[in-house]
Design a binder for these strands. Structure first.
Lengths: 270, 270
DNA sequence: CGGGGTGTTGAAGCCTGTCAACAATTGTGG
DNA sequence: CCACAATTGTTGACAGGCTTCAACACCCCG
């Protein structure tokens, strides 16, 4: 058993979240459906279809590629438990992590047989995944308008997260970048119904955090110390506690609105 | 008349590009259709539909917002001529440019009434645009599978560009970042059928380039000098000439594959 | 119990930012 | 068409955030 056990809380989330009607067959809670429940245009009727699309379950050990850069993507993957990272290698071997994938995330999340993919997906913890064949997925999403809307929404959200990362790297200091990232992760875990409060297991190592934020591991370490001594977070053995969410949010210039595209009311996360 | 006249070459492009059959009604060449012609799954039959979607033509002067951050996006915009930039302001007023928009680009390019948008679109030159109502666009894209595929492809390409920018900001030096950007712009202008060789008008000012690359205007200037003295580019009065494409590509660690998602053969750009 | 992965700390240097002044260019109005 | 103002580009000196290199401590796992 790994030390990272965001996974254990999945069951509790299913009971807690108020959208049981969305997953009638699945009392334990499907994090993807939890996410979609925040989409105002989501048609609950297609929840079973979403659920049925991903048939095959598999377990991927930590630090194994789920998808490799340059491979053929003939399966669509739904991450059920655990953390993963989408990354890309620059020519000199430097690695950029493009996004952290949390329970409920789907990749690649578009209905187009896209052939060779230009990034890799790495399991940061032991992951439980479910897969759909690309054909079945493409067919379903292109035929059913409700399903199409749902996956367009996921795609828009995904792009908004990417843009937020670009702003993070382009305009903010190391301190603000990391504060911002922690806010994003907390908010997204909440959207997926995986956590409740301000504590969660932070799967990435400091080196992986560094590769995500365009920093070195050393400087990431020093910055984390700073966040600790400022009383914003507690971080021990990869368990992160957000001690002062308001100040962390301000430090990271974090605005959660982008996580709920099209939503009238911003989700109550902070 | 502005000094930036990438626009003038649009007509020529229409005659030159070998896909006249895709735009039967439009001898002058629709840059969006030029782009889509590179998508192997594109059904030429829906070209007229694409063309007919965007009815209203408008002109936007330089340095005016086409879409403002926080506004309601009830229209879909197709950029026909000129350059624009998608940007986002951080809380302290710092601006991050998220992408440069070239002829043939559409925004927002998804069939979902997304309400308030979290970025702005700024005209970097005088722009000619065509607009579609969100309703008509949504309806058409959600109903027609071929059209859906086309816009999914555009969306995937867009996301790939975003990812490339993230790698750029996260892993590369100022010198490599700018080299990479110039490669991308040349490649995309070529995809849209707007240029032919290695010369084009670079609409953004050095300050705008800086805001795109996460640098200061001063350092961008110095880096451009370096690129000049190294004989990679010529840049005078915003007219950019790529003098040595092979070395520029190496300096920027640029791989054009991501611009043609799903394409078997990478486009012949470099 | 030992070893590799991970976290921590120090010192030195460099890439990039900041501040400031000026030149060149573009746009505007008389 | 010229004169003026505003924007954009250029250059220098200096400062600082982050990187690099290196060593060591810790912890988990076999």
């Amino acid at each position: 058993m790994t030390a990272i056990d965001t996974e254990r809380r999945v069951e509790a989330a299913g009971l807690r979240s108020g959208n049981c009607q969305l997953a009638p067959r699945n009392e334990s809670g499907n994090p993807l459906l939890n996410k979609l429940a925040h989409f105002s245009g989501f048609n609950p009727a297609c929840a079973p279809t979403v659920d049925r699309l991903f048939r095959r379950t598999a377990i991927v050990p930590r630090h194994r590629d789920i998808l490799s850069e340059g491979s053929q993507a003939d399966e669509i993957v739904l991450l059920l438990r655990g953390w993963a990272a989408r990354y890309k290698l620059a020519h000199d071997g430097e690695r950029q992590i493009l996004s952290f994938l949390l329970p409920g995330d789907v990749f690649p999340s578009h209905p187009l047989p896209v052939g060779v993919i230009d990034y890799g997906i790495l399991a940061l913890t032991r992951c439980t995944i479910k897969t759909a064949t690309a054909e079945a997925f493409d067919h379903a999403v292109l035929r059913d308008a409700d399903l199409a809307r749902a996956f367009w929404w996921l795609s828009i959200q995904d792009k908004a997260i990417l843009r937020a990362w670009l702003v993070n790297l382009g305009t903010r200091s190391a301190y603000a970048r990391i504060a911002n990232l922690f806010c994003e992760l907390a908010a997204r875990l909440r959207l997926a119904g995986v956590i409740d409060g301000w504590v969660f297991d932070l799967a990435p190592t400091q080196e992986e955090l560094a590769d995500a934020e365009g920093l070195t591991a050393v400087h990431t370490n020093r910055t984390l110390q700073q966040l600790r001594t400022d009383g914003l977070i507690k971080l021990d053995k990869r368990r992160l506690t957000i001690l002062d969410s308001a100040r962390l949010q301000r430090a990271g210039d974090f605005d959660p609105a982008y996580l709920n595209p099209g939503g009238r009311a911003p989700i109550h996360l902070f």
